[in-house]
C-alpha cells in the first residue's frame, strides 16, 4: 500500500468520523459541510405499497413509508436534497383515475427539490402533464426538450442551482428521445435535442459560470445499452464536470453506484434504484471548507473503502 494514499485516506476518512461516525477526530465538524442527496426513479404511480401477492416486491414501496424515511433523514441531516429521475406517471390505477394529480401532490408534500420528465409523463399527452403541473411545488428539469412550440413553453427549466450551507449544487435534467417510444400525437411539437451536446453546454456553465461545488444530472436516458445508444454511461464518459448522474428509465437496480472516469479523469458516479419506489437512494458528499495553505485531498478509493467497510 502506498503510504501517502493511506494517509490521505485516513484524513478523508476522519471527515466521516467528524460528521458523526466517531467523536474522536482531529478535525472539527465545522471544517466540513455534508450534503445528503436522496433520490428515486421510475416510481410509476406506486402510491400504495406493492400488493402482498406481487411476484417481485410483495409489500415493498409506498409513499407513506418513503415519506417517513425521508422525514427521519431530514431530522438527522442538515443539508438534504431530494430528486426524482422521471416516470412518476403510469403504472397504477391512481394514474388512470386521477391523471397524475396525486403523484405531483405527494411529491410536493414529501418536499422533492426537483425532478425530470420520463417518457410516461407524456401518457396523457403534453396537455395531460401540463394540467397536473400546477400540483407540483418543485421544478421539472428538461434541458434537452425544446417545448417552444408547445403549451409547456417556459413551464420547465433546463437547470436549477441549489444553495445549501454555502455550497452551490447545480442540477440539470436530460430526457429520452420520444420518437419510437411515445406516440407523436402525445408529445406533439416537443423537440428532442442532443443530450450530450446539451450536457456539455450546461455542465460547463454550472461549473465555470455558476461556480457550482457539485454538478448533478437527473437523467431519464437509461443506464447502459448494448448498442451505442446514448445513456448515462455515455454521458458520464464524455463530459467533464458531472459528479453524479441520478438515472432512470431502464429500471436498473444498482447496489452501489457505478463509477465512470470522465474526460477530466475524475470519477462520475451513476446511480439508479430500480422502480416502483421500492428503494430510496442516498449519497452523502463531504466538502472541506477551503482554507489557505490546505492541500486538496485526493484520497484513493480503495483505502477509504476498506477502512470504512462495515
Amino acid at each position: 500500500m502506498n503510504r501517502r494514499n493511506f494517509l490521505q485516506g485516513t484524513v478523508a476518512g476522519s471527515v466521516l468520523f467528524a460528521l458523526g461516525l466517531n467523536s474522536e477526530s482531529l478535525y472539527a465538524a465545522s471544517d466540513f459541510v455534508k450534503l445528503t442527496i436522496l433520490h428515486t426513479n421510475d416510481v410509476h404511480s406506486r402510491i400504495d405499497p406493492f400488493p402482498l401477492d406481487d411476484e417481485k416486491f410483495p409489500g415493498r414501496g409506498g409513499v407513506a413509508p418513503r415519506s417517513a424515511l425521508i422525514n427521519k433523514i431530514r431530522q438527522q441531516e442538515k443539508n438534504v436534497l431530494l430528486f426524482d429521475a422521471g416516470d412518476l406517471f403510469q403504472g397504477s390505477p391512481y394514474f388512470n383515475y386521477y391523471g397524475g394529480e396525486l403523484e405531483m401532490k405527494l411529491m410536493s408534500k414529501m418536499g422533492y427539490d426537483a425532478g425530470t420528465m420520463g417518457n410516461h409523463e407524456f401518457d396523457n399527452g403534453i396537455e395531460g402533464f401540463h394540467k397536473q403541473l400546477p400540483h407540483a411545488s418543485f421544478p421539472f428539469l428538461t434541458s434537452n426538450y425544446d417545448f417552444t412550440d408547445t403549451i409547456l413553453r417556459g413551464k420547465t427549466k433546463d437547470y436549477q442551482v441549489f444553495k445549501k450551507d454555502g455550497l452551490k449544487v447545480g442540477v440539470f435534467g436530460l430526457c429520452i428521445e420520444l420518437s419510437g417510444i411515445v406516440n407523436k400525437e402525445q408529445y406533439g411539437n416537443t423537440r428532442y435535442l442532443d443530450p450530450l451536446k446539451k450536457a456539455l453546454e450546461i455542465e460547463s456553465f454550472l461549473k465555470k459560470e455558476e461556480k457550482c461545488d457539485l454538478v448533478i444530472c437527473l437523467s431519464h436516458l437509461g443506464y447502459d445499452y448494448r448498442n451505442n445508444k446514448i445513456s448515462d454511461k455515455v454521458i458520464a464518459k464524455n463530459t467533464h464536470y458531472i459528479d453524479l448522474i441520478i438515472g432512470g428509465h431502464t429500471h436498473t437496480f444498482l447496489d452501489v453506484p457505478d463509477s465512470v472516469k470522465n474526460l477530466n479523469g475524475n470519477e462520475t458516479l451513476i446511480n439508479q434504484v430500480g422502480y416502483g419506489g421500492v428503494n430510496l437512494g442516498r449519497l452523502d458528499f463531504v466538502f472541506e471548507r477551503d482554507r489557505r495553505g490546505k492541500k486538496t485531498y485526493s484520497a484513493a478509493t480503495e483505502q477509504i473503502n476498506s477502512y470504512f467497510k462495515f
Binding site: 413509508p65 459528479d243 452501489v256 446511480n271 463531504v286 472541506e288 477551503d290
Partner: peptide, 19 residues
C-alpha cells in the same frame, strides 16, 4: 474544485422501502 469548497468524499446508501 473551482468553488469555495473542496469535495472530499462521498458515501452511498440504499434504503429498502418495506413494511
Amino acid at each position: 474544485c473551482t468553488g469555495a469548497y473542496k469535495y472530499v468524499s462521498s458515501k452511498e446508501r440504499l434504503y429498502l422501502i418495506d413494511r
